[in-house]
């Protein structure tokens, strides 16, 4: 049979495809039947947090940080409660990572604070003298892309029924309104908690520095 296949490339290719495809079906599909179930009380990311998640992706923190606490005593002692599937229901994409050059961050919001992050992102060595994490000073001047984050909220609300309020709707005007009423006040709170006047000033002028969005996101990781 195999020798016959080797003379008939079309059937050979079909054979290979069947063998590789059905393993995929069995491996991946069953989990989809159960859909993504958010745990009780889980709220979708705010637009500011989404913007922060984009900063996390852009500066690629996932290169060094995981967001998955495994069920071992050594990990729960270090980082807190082990991670549960339903906590990730709004994570598109998932950001578990595959390497811990730095510590896990899945619950970092519970044991670090905005002012600590402000010190740490500006210069990690100022709080952890031996740190090998790069300083991310550019995040203090770069402006976060709130519009794209808002677009993401609109999209996931529409396409995946992510439970956002009615004020998340398409269009520039809706965005501007939402930004003024929701995003900027939230950002101001974070900026103040970070105890840096330059950040507060920037937010007050209507621009959210990347680091403020990022810290909003990190604070959300609980």
């Amino acid at each position: 049979m195999f020798h016959w296949l080797e003379k008939h490339p079309f059937f050979f290719a079909v054979g290979v495809f069947v063998v590789i495809a059905y393993a995929g079906l069995i491996e991946v599909l069953p989990n989809f039947m159960e859909k993504a179930r958010p745990i009780k009380g889980l709220k979708p990311y705010t637009v500011l947090e989404l913007a922060g998640k984009e900063v996390y992706k852009k500066d690629n923190c996932i290169a060094c940080h995981s967001q998955l606490i495994r069920p071992f005593k050594a990990e729960t002692d270090r980082y807190g409660q082990y991670s549960m599937s339903g906590e990730y229901a709004y994570d598109r994409p998932f950001l578990w990572g595959s390497k811990r050059t730095g510590p896990d961050l899945h619950r970092v919001g519970r044991y670090r604070t905005p002012d600590w992050h402000a010190n740490h992102m500006w210069n990690p060595k100022s709080v952890v003298p031996d740190s090998i994490m790069p300083a991310y000073k550019h995040q203090f001047t770069n402006v976060a892309d709130l519009e794209t984050a808002y677009a993401e909220a609109v999209t996931v609300k529409k396409v995946f029924n992510t439970p956002y309020g009615d004020d998340i709707k398409p269009g520039k005007a809706a965005f501007e309104k939402y930004k003024k009423e929701k995003i900027l006040p939230e950002a101001l709170k974070i900026a103040k908690a970070m105890k840096r006047d330059d950040l507060v000033k920037m937010v007050e002028s209507g621009k959210v520095p990347e680091v403020v969005a990022l810290v909003a996101y990190l604070e959300r990781l609980k």
Partner: peptide, 10 residues
Amino acid sequence: IGQMPSFVNR
């Protein structure tokens, strides 16, 4: 000085 997080149940 700033904020100290809670370590409740840890």
